[in-house]
Design a protein around this nucleic acid. Sequence first.
DNA 1: AGGGTTTGCCAC
DNA 2: AAACGTGGCAAACCCT
Length: 554
Amino acid sequence: MRIAVVADGEGGGWLQELDEAPGPVRHVSDLATAVREAEHARSEPPRWVWSASEDLYPDLVRAGVRVSRCHDAALTEALLLGYHARHGEASSLGAAWARLHRLPVPDDPARPLGEGTTAQPALFEADRSTLPPGTDRLAALVEVHADQLRRIAELPDAGRMRLLAAVESAGGLAAAEMSHDGLPWRPDVHDEILTELLGPRPPSGQRPPVLADLVTRISESVGREVNPDSPAQVLKAMAWIGHPVASTRSWVLEGIDHPVVPLLLRYKELSRLHSANGWTWLESWVRQRSGPDGQRLGRFHPDYVVGGVVSGRWATRGGGALQIPRSLRGAVRADPGWVLVRADAGQLEPRVLAAVSGDDALAAAAAEEDLYARLAVHVGGDRERAKIGMLSAMYGQTSGDAAPLLATMRRLYPRALDYVDSAARTGEGGGIVRSWLGRTSPAPDGWAATVAGPGGERRRRAHGRFTRNFVVQATAAEWALVLLASLRQLLPDMPEGAGIVFFVHDEVVLHVPADLAEETVRAVAEAEARTRVTLFGNSPVRFPLAPVVTQNIG
DNA sequence: AGGGTTTGCCAC
DNA sequence: AAACGTGGCAAACCCT
């Protein structure tokens, strides 16, 4: 059963059941309650059909309502446009409807601030769909939805795109829920870590003591004033002391034997921590004082952007949630009486390559807990070299040791290497490639001019590396989406705020009451099994997740 | 003053 | 060892 829904902007909305034929339109004055009731009315919950989870679902979640599944028209539209190499085009409901009626297509609306940073009451803002004023929005939604189902059915791999649309939509739900619940983050622990490394917090605008001291010592070592934050000044300083460098990147400086180098490297490391994730970050992104919205204290609320990356990985807006430095992970702590369950899909991309290419030898290695260790046995070398060889194949690296390693890989894993080499050739020719479920790489724009002009060969190669990596990275992102979708379904009933609280590409973190830890771990294992079979049937490839129950993930 | 670009580093 | 994919972000830099 599918139910189409649009909000009326006053807390209510219109619903319409979609069986073989659309049922009667029903207006409700309390949309959250109506959705909650419909969610539990049947043995199987409905699939909600709406313009965009991003627009409707945060309000529902704030009202304490969670839904099991949905069809997100905007995310689905973007997938379908992408399939036909039309990546840049607008994908909101209004745009899809306009294309259907051969009307001028409106641009997508600029996205409002994320749920993590705002806290408005649940009002179900009427319309971010860019439909023309006066349009029957429910009818337009039903029409676009039917059209999307038809367009999916026409594809050569309809079943795969149907799955992709479903898990992309589920990702939208999971993202809103995670943004709302937030990652438990202890400001006091964060402050301890910063103070330990940087010294006590300075007045705003000043350098922390440890950094200030390093600046002094760097200047003394060079023999004149240097602002290490300025690459230009560091370049001059290095030339001045007789060690000219082409750039001030850490790995370049590392090769230079001079007493100032360790000081500079230490400064870079700590300065990065201070500017990116220092006290200012803590105050901006972790709620420490209660407000009117009732959000929990000590939570980091990243604003996830589903479908924000061409490969299908998620992006985030603000707060840099996908780049939390390892040194700060200790600030992620379970509440008293609760635990964190962390599950990390190790070596995801080579496992994905083994599964999609059907390479028996690589699949055999990917049936093991440590794929690279097995590779090393095959290659007859050490694990580290085997890993470099594999990564070279997936990223298109050619420098350094890569060439001989790649030759070995090609001999041992011919089908796997064919798979990525073929994707690379397609990209070098300006073509498009697809993930396992049909997410499609964007066609390069202005290709003829790009290739003809100066640096054309270099750019051809670069695009080949992009498509080479795309077929693996995009499929890995699909694996993660199916896992998230499965996990949402399999988790036991949980109290408010419990569940998945963090997700980065191949790692999920759940925050649950301690007495639910065991069930949660079982659900993670079950979700992995379901994901593997859903995507790759009876492939021998395994995707070890090794869920760990902890108080902190540092 | 403010916007756009460059540099460099963080994550996977 | 060092330039190989996807990104976000901050500070310096460069321009209007």
